[in-house]
């Protein structure tokens, strides 16, 4: 766990509530033309969960093999989600751009 980055419970609630408010506000403005790229882009962002795997991977000594293997698996899967998500979103969005020529 991140020892040095501690949120007091009330800070945490601020983050949660404000994120929801900002999130809804920003997402509401995305036109339905772009809903599929929005979803795949969001999908890529949800891959940020791989940070959890990275924290586990980097805080475990090399001797604890089983933990390392599981954490590595998580990082690998998370990375596929992140990169695949961003690449495929980019692929879709470039189709929306080239037509303007």
């Amino acid at each position: 766990m991140l020892d040095s980055f501690y949120l007091s419970p009330i800070d945490g609630w601020y983050v949660i509530v404000l994120s929801i408010l900002i999130g809804l506000e920003v997402i509401k403005n995305v036109p339905s033309v772009l809903h599929t790229p929005l979803m795949s882009g969001a999908n890529a962002i949800s891959g940020i969960i791989l940070i959890g795997g990275a924290i586990q991977l980097l805080s475990t000594p090399l001797t604890e093999v089983s933990t390392l293997i599981v954490a590595s698996l998580a990082v690998l899967i998370g990375t596929i989600n992140v990169s695949g998500g961003f690449f495929v979103t980019n692929r879709m969005l470039s189709m929306f751009i080239k037509k303007k020529k």
């Binding site: 766990m1 980055f5 949660i16 929801i20 999130g23 997402i27 979803m39 940020i48 969960i49 959890g52």
Partner: peptide, 18 residues
Amino acid sequence: LFESTIMLLGGILVGSTG
């Protein structure tokens, strides 16, 4: 769980989209 604001924010953005 990891007390990570950025994971929290990212997750919430995706959750709101969904």
